[in-house]
Amino acid sequence: MSTHATTFGVPHRKMAMWVFIGSECMFFGSLIATYLSYKGKSVVGPTPAEILNIPLTSVSTFVLLMSSLAMVLALDAVQRDDTRQAKIWIGGVIVLGGIFLAGQVYEFSHFYHEGLTLQQNLFGSTFFVLTGFHGAHVTVGVIWMATLLVMAFRGRLGPERSLDVEVAGLYWHFVDVVWIVIFTVVYLIQ
C-alpha cells in the first residue's frame, strides 16, 4: 500500500483477506445451519441416503485437498523466485480445482436425472444452494489462479508479488476447509 508501517506487522491485504474469511464463516455457517435445521424435513424424496454418492465425492474431496498442497507449493516457489515451479503448481491448482468443479457438474446433473431438483424437496433446495455457492467460490478461485498463471507466464510474478499469491492462497485454502466441513456434515453424517 504505502511505506507507512502497519500496526500489527501484517500487510493490510493479508489482514483484509482474513477479516473477509471471518465474515465468510458466517455466510457458510448460515447455509450449513439451514441445511442441518431442515434435514429430514422434506415431505417427498429423494433423501440424502438414497442419492449421495460417497465414493465419487470422496475422490473430489481428496482432489480439493491436494489442490491446497499445490497452492502452498506455488507460494513457496514464488517466494523463492522459482518461476518454473510456480507455474507448475499454480497450474496444478487450476487443474485440480477444475476436476473438482467437473465432479460437481457431473454430480448435479446426475442428481437432476435421478429426480432431485432444486424444487423437488427441501433437501434439494438446501443441498444445491449450499454446495452451489461453494462451487461458485471454487470457480472464482480458479479464475483468480488463472490470472496469476497468466501473470507468471508474462514474467510478472516475482517474489515482490508473493503477497498477491499468498492472499489468493488464503482464499483458496478457506474454500477448501469449507468443503472439509460440507463433506462431513452433508455427505458423511447422514
Binding site: M15, W18, S23, C25, M26, G29, I32, A33, L36
Partner: peptide
C-alpha cells in the same frame, strides 16, 4: 490473524 478467524468461527458455530 488467528483471533480474527476464531471470532468468525465461534460466532458461526454458535449460530449453527
Amino acid at each position: 490473524l488467528t483471533a480474527i478467524l476464531s471470532t468468525g468461527l465461534v460466532v458461526a458455530a454458535a449460530i449453527i
